[in-house]
């Protein structure tokens, strides 16, 4: 059963024109994403989430490029990637292993630096920001969900969820929200258990609760059901869907078809670029994908 996390904001999914990410190989489209992001920046009154314009994209990325290695061994993992995600939108990024999905997510969340391009979250620049600014951005506006959960084994489930609330500069009320999330996600009975005493599904629900404690604008989920069985995975996907329905932008990297079925848009990362897929819920791994291109290409 999908969990409704909040009823305070109307669902605004599907308000963002899908054509924006239809074909990122088109220079015109990239330009369009850039213009939309710029307009969104100009029209934003304040950077506070409460003042965030519902129609403006939460995430704007353009011209992203990431190269691994140097010289002859250099490989282009991402090339001229552009992406805009609106509030309330759940975008799934699919692609074969090694195609750069996780790298894209890391760049979007400011966990890694692109070689070129620009990323903004809620109108605040990610690229070019100092480490302090990035920390503040992650703390206030971005929630991460990892494939391997990254729960601290020394803390019980509840303490893991409340971890962001302990950070200096944490949003007010995060503590209360974290406890409410534990109750709403049905984790109260196992909240005092250590991560290694929890099932994979329970661990990922705790990790999602942790990602939502600060009430972020953007949730980035890296293979959130990659380590879960179908039933547990379904619960997690419902949570992410609900999270988007609450008005957050959610970008999910996934391999699984059942995950793409819950997405508003499905993009395929191939040859270092994003392509729209024809339908959500399609098989992901049956596409042959060449290795990342050498820089010289």
């Amino acid at each position: 059963m999908p969990l409704k996390l909040s009823a305070t904001e109307p669902s605004i999914t599907r308000v963002w024109p899908r054509w924006l990410a239809a074909d990122t190989r088109s220079r015109g489209t990239i330009w369009s994403v850039g213009v939309v992001c710029a307009v969104a920046r100009l029209t934003r009154v304040t950077r506070l989430r409460t003042a965030h314009q519902p129609s403006a994209p939460v995430l704007c990325a353009s011209g992203l490029r990431k190269v691994y290695g140097e010289g002859r061994s250099a490989r282009v993992l991402l090339d001229e990637v552009a992406l805009a995600v609106a509030p309330g939108e759940l975008v799934a990024v699919v692609g074969r292993s090694g195609s750069g999905k996780s790298t894209l997510l890391h760049l979007l969340g400011g966990l890694d630096h692109p070689d070129a391009g620009r990323v903004e979250v809620g109108g605040r620049p990610v690229t070019g920001a100092s480490e302090r600014e990035l920390s503040a951005l992650r703390r206030e506006s971005i929630g991460f969900v990892f494939q391997f959960f990254h729960l601290l084994p020394e803390l019980d489930g509840e303490a893991n969820v409340l971890l962001p609330a302990r950070l200096p500069g944490a949003p007010a009320g995060a503590d209360r929200r974290g406890r409410a999330l534990i109750d709403r996600l049905g984790l109260r009975s196992v909240a005092r258990l250590a991560p290694h005493q929890l099932s994979g599904g329970e661990q990922q629900r705790f990790a999602i609760a942790r990602a939502l404690v600060a009430d972020p604008l953007l949730v980035l989920a890296d293979e959130p059901i990659g380590n879960l069985d179908a039933a547990a995975g379904s619960v997690v996907l419902d949570l992410l869907r609900s999270s988007a329905d609450e008005g957050r932008a959610v970008v999910m990297v996934t391999h699984q078809a059942e995950a793409t079925a819950r997405a508003d848009r499905v993009l395929r990362l191939e040859h270092g670029r994003l392509f729209p897929t024809h339908a959500s819920g399609a098989a992901i791994t049956d596409h042959a994908e060449p290795a990342p291109r050498p820089v010289s290409e």
Partner: peptide, 15 residues
């Protein structure tokens, strides 16, 4: 890994 996860959650150098 734990420190990286903390930083991903927004922990800065002061934290």
């Amino acid at each position: 890994g734990a420190v990286a996860a903390l930083r991903a959650l927004g922990a800065d150098a002061r934290a």
